[in-house]
Amino acid sequence: MSGIKFEVMARSALERMSEDEVVEYVIRRAKEGSVVVFEGQLSPQVLTKIIEEAMKNVDLEEFKGVDIHVVPPKTAGGGIIKKIFGRKFDTGITVISPAGALKDLKKGEDYISLKLG
């Protein structure tokens, strides 16, 4: 049994945090080896900041960065960006894990199946 810790955050908790707090929280948890699951989606700006901070924090031995997986909400029509970054960020699922922590990940229309590495 793997010792990886999961933290699942409700949308309401996410909404109480500033963008910088979300970024800091995700990076801190990823560096600790935890997987964070958000109800809903993060904005493209927050995701970009997470990538930037992950790169600043990469050390050569312990922390290699993060994996980001998003299941978009079910919407009719439109390309993937409209589905993922539509006006509403309160639907869908976002999973951010330390790079390589998840061995296998399958995405359905409204679910994510995770297998630990």
Binding site: S43, P44, Q45, L47, T48, I51, I68, H69, V70, I80, I81, I84, F85
Partner: peptide
Amino acid sequence: DPYDQVNITLIGNLEA
């Protein structure tokens, strides 16, 4: 696979 998180984040950012 075009549904790559880097592509999606980049495009979302440019659009925003």
